[in-house]
Design a protein around this nucleic acid. Sequence first.
DNA 1: CATGAATGAGTCTTCATTCAT
DNA 2: GATGAATGAAGACTCATTCAT
Lengths: 218, 218, 218, 218
Amino acid sequence: MDEQQWIANLLKENDRDAKLTEKQIKILQAAVETFAEKGYASTSTSEIAKKAGVAEGTIFRHYKTKKDLLLAIVIPTLTKVIVPTVAKEFAKDVFENQYESYEDFLRALIKNRYHFIKKNLPLVRIFWQEFAFHPEIKEEFQKAFTENVYQRFKEMVEQFQEKGEIVELPTASIIRMTITTIGGFFLTRFVIMPEHEWDDEVEIERTIQFLMNGLRKR
Amino acid sequence: MDEQQWIANLLKENDRDAKLTEKQIKILQAAVETFAEKGYASTSTSEIAKKAGVAEGTIFRHYKTKKDLLLAIVIPTLTKVIVPTVAKEFAKDVFENQYESYEDFLRALIKNRYHFIKKNLPLVRIFWQEFAFHPEIKEEFQKAFTENVYQRFKEMVEQFQEKGEIVELPTASIIRMTITTIGGFFLTRFVIMPEHEWDDEVEIERTIQFLMNGLRKR
Amino acid sequence: MDEQQWIANLLKENDRDAKLTEKQIKILQAAVETFAEKGYASTSTSEIAKKAGVAEGTIFRHYKTKKDLLLAIVIPTLTKVIVPTVAKEFAKDVFENQYESYEDFLRALIKNRYHFIKKNLPLVRIFWQEFAFHPEIKEEFQKAFTENVYQRFKEMVEQFQEKGEIVELPTASIIRMTITTIGGFFLTRFVIMPEHEWDDEVEIERTIQFLMNGLRKR
Amino acid sequence: MDEQQWIANLLKENDRDAKLTEKQIKILQAAVETFAEKGYASTSTSEIAKKAGVAEGTIFRHYKTKKDLLLAIVIPTLTKVIVPTVAKEFAKDVFENQYESYEDFLRALIKNRYHFIKKNLPLVRIFWQEFAFHPEIKEEFQKAFTENVYQRFKEMVEQFQEKGEIVELPTASIIRMTITTIGGFFLTRFVIMPEHEWDDEVEIERTIQFLMNGLRKR
DNA sequence: CATGAATGAGTCTTCATTCAT
DNA sequence: GATGAATGAAGACTCATTCAT
């Protein structure tokens, strides 16, 4: 029920309408699980149906095609999760605070994303895997990123460049390095070596220090 | 012809035997191209056959199953390309030199990998995409990495830690940061924003400086 | 409303009972339209429902199966339209007049049918198309034709054979020639070349003359 | 074998190439049979496969879609059967003879078509049924008719109008009446009342007389 | 060695029909 | 009466794989 709730909330079209049926939720859950595990192309609709405990036809009553089902999972993960989470909770959490240093900002950012990824690992995996093969997803992502994240990120960077805390490289490079360093940590942590025993607290702090050393003005 | 040569050399079982017939080469080329573009699961053997200009049955004469064909592409890309290329050319190029500084080593490493990826982008993409879904690949990769790359990398790091050039973090962390930073650059450069206009020379140097700043002992 | 009325009157079970609800009428209209355009087998009930603006289930409340819906359209088109229309209006119009000549009878017949077909083209098309595949329809038609039309037609023919106007061929042959000639005209006119510019008055008269020349005693 | 031969000859793309496999012939036969009996839309490919004694996949190796299979049956029936049969054998038989009278021409025409239809009844039924729903068929037919039949028919009619044998109506009307009268006979004979006991010789002669009476100049 | 026709299990999708609300 | 979510059997079509030539 609890488990059902969050995925339902996450994926329904918007918070007002959208009474997802119980079956719809089960379908989405089963799809997320299976897509994440085997990939979109290798997952059959009959398998999803079986796992969801519904008839195969039921899937197609709600999602006209298999691809619609994928997009129904991935697009909200972007527009609802990256965008508003970023824009509302996350941004409140991250951007709209007044940080005393870029380091503090980094710490907030990395912790926020850490918890988000940990919670939504299957969704993130699906997004990551299918990103390359579905132009719709790629476009949606770039739009979401450009419109919502990039601008705020830029302002943040410039603010601390002006304060003389971080180096005067082009903003784009700084953003890229920040993101890839953090992304690289998450990738190693959650995708490549998830079974390794991680001391997450330490590793996060280490990553922050590394980043700060790399970016600090001196 | 030239094009054919390198992929033939790259993929044939080992440098001695292995007279790949013309058809085999065409099959491998077609497979690499198509797997990279659409993903393994979404590629049909008949499509490969058509693109390679051979009969459908011919593929199965050389590769018992479709998966065999994938592995015939990916495993050598690891064992021949990561391993011996690393061990012979690359390692000659990278590890077996005497570097005056970690920075020089980084520069050699990043440039070597840059050219390799640029040349083998489709192969890298396939590896990257299928990595998650095929345990064989994952294992083979981890074996290759652990046995060949990790140990040499570690020695290199320790050498410059002793010299007092780089910081005394755990070797594993330093390796991870080095690799993810470089990997992050390549990912952005070749996968996420390949169409962006890059000044590669500048960007590489920037990445090196960032890494060095992050790792330098102070 | 007007449009609704005639199809309602045409199709309701019989003139007394049969208060077809508004929804029923809409279903029938949608079904007629779609069956005529795409054929019975290629029409889905959901399509009809959508076109009629009712829920899918509603159709099955009124017609147990899809085939029932077809028969609800076709059978009245026969029993109400061929039979009573023939027997009452048409027959009043056609058979029960005293014609001075077979030619006058033909003229009345062809004009009456011309207007009927023009008005009911979709119904006629459905009947025509499905005739071959549904024994019920075939039987119903043959019954209706034999019981109601053939006998009266025969009397008409014999009457003018006795008067010496038309030739002494077997009645069946004369009826067949009359019907196929007229039918052939309608077929060309409404099915094969509907978009051709027809001068119907002239063409009808020409058909009558042709028939009379073919049948006239000399 | 014999049975197989004619349908193979009839349907293969052209007399030279076209080695239809045994299986292909079986598929075509099964398809013709079933389409004729139940209509295209109501026939399933699995049914055809079963009847043909092949795997369902085999059908799609030869005909990319179910509709392709239909067209592979119907179009040759037009272009090979209407056209060249008309243009070569039939036309030799019918048009290129020197007829002494329109009546002789009619007799040749009707007998030729009588045998053709009798032999190819299923094909004719399919054509007739699907004509209305598939624009491709309609267009192909109109092309075939206009290009091959109409012109020759017209010359024939005009020739006998000049000789004063037949009436001076517009050629189009005369052709239409000729065709619909003959068509009407065939329709009644083969479609509407095939089980009736027909004395075909007599009925054909009667039809000719009727037509001639209708068209004779007087 | 290479071919390509043949296979049949499996894929996504549609559809007539049912039934709880 | 009307709805529309749910069903599952059936539909068209795909595909990896085999095998006779």
